[in-house]
Design a protein around this nucleic acid. Structure first.
Lengths: 170, 170
DNA sequence: AAAAATAATCAGGTCTACCTGACTAAAGAG
DNA sequence: CTCTTTAGTCAGGTAGACCTGATTATTTTT
């Protein structure tokens, strides 16, 4: 029988953990801020990882944003040199977007780094932590799917299994 | 000897965890979005938890923001009915800010809820998880202190040990 | 009492994330 | 060869998180 108050304690610690991450990021300014991987420009960057040249339309479909917003973010990314935009030859309405090397590097920078704090865990603890995260993440996948059974939000699907491996193949 | 690749795996899972939280929050819209506890209005709300009536000046000192921004956020919170502002009688320059009940409730709403996903953990795992989080958080406290030894950023100090217990006393 | 310091406000600005509505340029269908 | 659909753009807007500079009250110091 699961102990509710222990769950509560854990919940608090998780919040604390997130707070601390946030504070730590304030200090590193820009370097490893993965808050911003989940919206706006970051979201687009991520959505481009596993493709090479995708139309804005397809982008829109996977990230669940209006075409206008999408276009705006793509443009911003272009200005930052993280993506390129070029007209398709086969369909002249279409704009193809692709990551530049700098774009790819940017994502990597923002997701790769092994947080320093993991160094305090022993091998055993690391093992346990892996385990726990697997369970939790698994549950969250399920919860999300339940909450959004239409699955029309392909962005989710997309994120969920592919991205990380693409970015950091073993 | 700690296994680096295992750390890498864990790092990936943590990112995945954060992604999933973010996605889940998209669905709940507004309800439990603790991303926004760490900036702007949320930050102020949090800074008010353990006080009853604090001057904007003191607020500024603890949250590391300009007085102007602070004033702006306080005003916004006032409009939302989450704080009150009143002139001090002893020093007529001073504006005292305090949380309303609704403000307090708001914070609670945003921090209290025990994430559903914790239910998949056994008592043992919960125990392990608590342990791990303690270790990690402890390390992060230390890292932050190291990175910012001036400690001039009192906001950090403030957050770190007090808030959560105030919000959810056992 | 005059000068200096302090708490806060006003005005105006930047940048990000989004959105709606109106519109253009191609492509596809009949 | 029109008619409609499609991909994308333009214009303009809201709202949040910040910031700088200038100014107003009030308190403190001298």
């Amino acid at each position: 029988m699961t102990d509710i108050s222990s769950q509560g304690k854990t919940a608090g610690k998780i919040i604390e953990f997130e707070m601390l991450q946030n504070i730590a990021e304030d200090d590193n300014k820009h370097e490893s801020d993965y808050k911003m991987l989940f919206q706006g420009q970051g979201k687009i960057l991520l959505a481009l990882v596993d493709t090479d040249g995708i139309s804005q339309k397809d982008l829109v479909d996977r990230i669940d944003m209006t075409p206008q917003s999408t276009a705006e973010f793509v443009r911003k990314l272009e200005r930052r040199g993280l993506v390129t935009r070029e007209k398709s030859i086969t369909d002249k309405r279409v704009t193809l977007v692709r990551l530049t090397d700098r774009g790819r590097a940017e994502i990597q920078k923002r997701t790769r780094s092994i947080p320093e704090y993991l160094r305090v865990l022993s091998d055993d603890e690391l093992q346990q932590f892996n385990n726990i995260l697997d369970k939790i993440n698994g549950q969250m996948y399920r919860d999300i799917k339940d909450a959004d059974p239409t699955l029309q939000n392909k962005y989710h699907q997309f994120m969920l299994n592919q991205v990380l491996h693409k970015i950091h193949p073993d």
